[in-house]
């Protein structure tokens, strides 16, 4: 991870809890990472590991009740977001930080035309351009590769395919030229050919606008192709960070190693794919010590792993890991 101070977004010790009837769900605990300007950061992890909640915390769209950010700092472009007023947050949302979601089929409002929904964002954040809003919407739709935008701008979401709707979502999020785009599993609900198109599109748009992207995904293929940096999360915590290249070539945390091993490789003959044994722990009742110890080939035998949680530490410049047994991990550092 770049430490040169040119970070667009810095998350420091973020902790978000959900106060449910069954108990407190510690969805995000002590999470820290940075996103460099103009780069793509991939946040990887299994479902329920807290990656989406982290993103929603950045947007401050955690529904209260039951969810609440209970600690930490979020610094965006030098501004402490958690101290910002509601009004300031609304200015930032959609204008400086935009977000696209996993479910293109349901993320658009079914009773308004797609143009109407894009125009709404333009009119909200760029009041001086309000009279050109429809032109901007058509222009954006052209940019995201929608053919015949003059006609489609007047269509309703149900008249479009999933891929088209996700393009509309992207057009909507980019119409105010945000400096950070949070893409929460943008391609998970789409079929593979559309996935590639959408990712290419995001990459092109990033090159044109110089924006940063926080790409939340569980698809390691997406990470390898698109990300500059990687954050691996497991059970509400960050367990490993580094550049995509380093993490893929030399995974330090046993969880990351397991994830990479479970990928099918071309030319390899296997009856079954490798899996990480066990289940994702219940967030209401995380295991003691290192949260991965119940599924870890090393940790399950080690008393220290079972009782003490390893903090995230830098092992080599730009490389952080949270594992007592990781190469180069010392307790003093």
């Amino acid at each position: 991870m770049t430490q040169n101070g040119d970070n667009l977004l810095s998350i420091r010790n973020l902790t978000t809890h959900f106060f449910t009837e069954q108990g407190v769900v510690k969805a995000v605990q002590d999470v820290s990472y940075d996103i460099a300007r103009g780069k793509t950061l991939a946040v990887v992890g299994e479902s329920g590991c807290g990656k989406s909640v982290t993103a929603m915390s950045v947007m401050q769209l955690i529904p209260w009740p039951p969810g609440k950010i209970v600690g930490g700092e979020i610094i965006f472009d030098g501004e402490a977001l958690l101290e910002a007023t509601d009004e300031r947050m609304r200015e930032i949302r959609g204008n400086d930080i935009a977000m696209i979601f996993q479910e293109p089929m349901t993320s658009l409002n079914p009773v308004f035309t797609v143009g109407n929904q894009i125009v709404e964002a333009v009119k909200l954040h760029q009041k001086d351009k309000a009279d050109q809003a429809w032109d901007i919407a058509i222009d954006m739709m052209k940019k995201v590769g929608i053919a015949d935008p003059e006609r489609r701008v007047r269509e309703y979401p149900h008249q479009m395919s999933g891929g088209m709707r996700q393009r509309v979502m992207i057009a909507m999020s980019l119409c105010c030229s945000p400096s950070l785009l949070i893409a929460d599993e943008p391609t998970t609900a789409l079929d593979v050919t559309i996935q590639a198109q959408i990712l290419d599109l995001l990459r092109d748009l990033q090159r044109q606008n110089g924006m940063s992207i926080m790409m939340i995904t569980h698809d390691l293929g997406v990470v390898a192709e698109n990300a500059d940096d990687v954050v691996v999360m497991y059970a509400s915590r960050v367990v490993e960070t580094g550049t995509a290249k380093n993490v893929f070539n030399n995974p330090l945390h046993p969880y990351t190693q397991g994830l990479l091993q479970s990928l099918p490789r071309l030319g390899e003959k296997k009856e079954r794919l490798d899996v990480i044994g066990g289940n994702v722990p219940n967030p209401l009742n995380f295991p003691s010590g290192c949260k991965f110890h119940t599924r870890c080939p090393i940790g399950c035998k080690d008393t220290k792993c079972r009782t003490q949680e390893p903090p995230l530490k830098e092992v080599t410049p730009g490389r952080q890991v949270a594992c007592w047994h990781a190469e180069g991990y010392t307790e003093t550092k």
Binding site: M59, L61, R93, T106, N109, P110, V111, E120, L124, M172
Partner: peptide, 24 residues
């Protein structure tokens, strides 16, 4: 989900409720 999208756009709760939610 569209309510979440509307909030992510930066709309106020009033607009989200009386425009997006009410129309649906």
């Amino acid at each position: 989900d569209y309510v979440r999208t509307a909030f992510a756009k930066g709309l106020t709760a009033r607009v989200v409720l009386f425009k997006h939610v009410l129309k649906n």
